[in-house]
Design a binder for these strands. Structure first.
Length: 458
RNA sequence: GGAUAGGUGGCAGAGCGGUGAUGCGUGGGACUGCAGAUCCCAUCUAAUAGGGUUCAACUCCCUACCUAUCCUCCA
């Protein structure tokens, strides 16, 4: 398996530190505001990458943090006359629920920053002891000059970094590049005890505290949106490596591209975002996943209706074929289709820097072939094709869930059988009424010649 | 100004040093009680500009220009 490592800028062969075991960490959200399509894209991509790693035989520990204490959360709490805790809790719940809707369910553990204060303090103490951090007027800072590789991930030379024009000067810092490890409490702010006084952690330290806890000082993959490369990921590297003295924090870094709206980055601060909830009112989760995966994961995508419509069309096409394969209820033919080239093609696409777009194209080709030859297919071929679909679905999550057993199926089949008789009697008024009512109840019905197909709308 | 991706047909987007992927859209046809879906055909002097390498460049190299993102919080 090969993919682009942002640290080197090269596509590299993936070699985990310990055999088939893989530790992957992805930066989660700050829970202060509703989540938008950009978040959806990043987390859907990593969900699919995680699932692909698992389906390729790796034993994966996928860890994600949730930033539940931060300046913006406090600001939001003040604006809404509530506590930082309740703001964080509200949006944490919303986040988890959205991820659940989007079938993002590969994360083994969500770690909240506030539950790792002890570990955070331990890291800051070690940084103080070995001279990489210092206490200043309003908190504790990391001394960037003390870490020679600062800038390596983002390819920035340390000297080029501070122009001073856009950053409001903080006179407590010894150097403008330095970043906060611990912020001392201001009136009304939530705070924890520490050797440097009551306060709260800076943004970057939670990640290394959490990853050190579960993965140790060096691990395999670190992911996140490309807007986190600088300064966030640079800071994480500086913190952990200054403690560990090791060559790496994570061996491989994967960064996802941004989502723009009318050519401008969708972001909380600009306010030009479409929330995931709004999107889910108009498109089902599988369509959203398709749209977010259907392209190079590192490229910027411009969000548009046509992007979503294309995803909708393609998803529906796959649904039709997959449903037929799974609900095969007519005679089999004797045509054998060799699925090996399709399976290998998808594998090759995915192993080559997670080329979802190409994998999608190949599954579409297989779908077209299956549809075209459907009546002639042998049972073995139907099963083989289904298994390719299922494997594909195991990491993309774009296929429809097939309801092909149970009480509901019995009931719907019965209703549709009665409707079939009405149609034979040309009682279209009643048969259309039944179809209409089933549709209202969320059951799609399609008449394809004599075959009637139905499924539950999602 | 520095860094990182890119600039391909109406749109989205691959691949390849030498047969113009594919999807969406559009046009036409087939099928159909209706709705929906599907199928077939068509849609093309496609490569930001200018140099260079080569028998041959969209594909390699250089230059310019343009776009997005980062250099402040951000997925």
């Amino acid at each position: 398996m090969r993919f682009k490592n942002s640290l080197s800028g090269e596509i590299e062969e993936f070699r985990p530190l310990r055999g088939r075991r893989v530790n992957m960490y992805v930066c989660g959200p700050t829970v202060q505001e509703s989540f938008h399509i950009g978040h959806a894209r990043t987390y859907i991509i990593f969900d699919s990458i995680a699932k692909y790693l698992v389906s390729s035989g790796y034993s994966l520990f996928y860890l994600q943090n949730i930033t539940d204490i931060d300046d913006k959360i406090i600001k939001k709490a003040n604006e809404t006359d509530s506590s930082a805790l309740s703001v964080a809790e509200k949006y944490t719940m919303e986040y988890l629920s959205l991820m659940n809707s989007l079938r993002v369910d590969s994360i083994n553990l969500y770690a909240k920053a506030t539950e790792y204060i002890e570990e955070i303090i331990s890291q800051i103490s070690r940084l103080m002891e070995n001279g990489h951090a210092y206490s200043a007027g309003d908190g504790v800072y990391f001394n960037v000059r003390s870490f020679k590789d600062y800038g390596r991930l983002s390819n920035q030379r340390s000297e080029d970094l501070v122009s001073g024009t856009r950053v409001s000067e903080n006179t407590n810092k010894a150097d403008q590049k330095d970043f906060a490890l611990w912020k001392l409490q201001k009136p009304g702010e939530p705070a924890w005890d520490s050797p440097w006084g009551k306060g709260r952690p800076g943004w970057h330290i939670e990640d290394t505290a959490i990853t050190e806890t579960y993965f140790g000082q060096e691990y395999d993959i670190h992911g996140g949106g490309s807007d986190l490369i600088f300064p966030h990921h640079e800071a994480e590297i500086a913190q952990m490596r200054s403690i560990s003295g090791k060559e790496y924090l994570a061996r491989y870094w994967i960064h996802t591209g941004m989502v723009t709206l009318n050519g401008e980055k969708m972001s909380k601060s600009l306010g030009n975002f479409i929330t995931i909830s709004e999107l889910l009112k108009r498109y089902n989760p599988r369509e959203v996943r398709f749209a977010m995966l259907n392209g190079n994961y590192r490229s910027t995508i411009d969000f548009s209706e046509s992007l979503m419509e294309e995803a909708r069309k393609n998803t529906h096409y796959l649904d039709i074929i997959y449903r037929r394969l799974k609900n095969h209820n007519s005679a089999y033919g004797d045509l054998e289709i060799d699925v090996t080239p399709f399976r290998d093609g998808i594998k090759e696409a995915m192993d080559g820097d997670f080329n979802f777009r190409l994998a999608f194209r190949i599954i579409m080709d297989l779908a077209g072939k299956a549809y075209h030859d459907f009546p002639d297919l042998s049972k073995a071929s139907v099963d083989e094709i289904s298994s390719v679909f299922e494997w594909f679905n195991s990491f993309t999550g774009v296929l429809v869930h097939i309801e092909n057993s149970g009480v509901l199926k019995e009931a719907v089949d019965l209703i549709l059988d009665l409707r079939r008789r009405l149609r034979e009697e040309k009682n279209y008024a009643l048969s259309d009424l039944i179809r209409g009512r089933l549709m209202e109840a969320g059951i799609e019905v399609q008449d394809n010649g004599k075959q009637v197909e139905w499924w539950i709308r999602d």
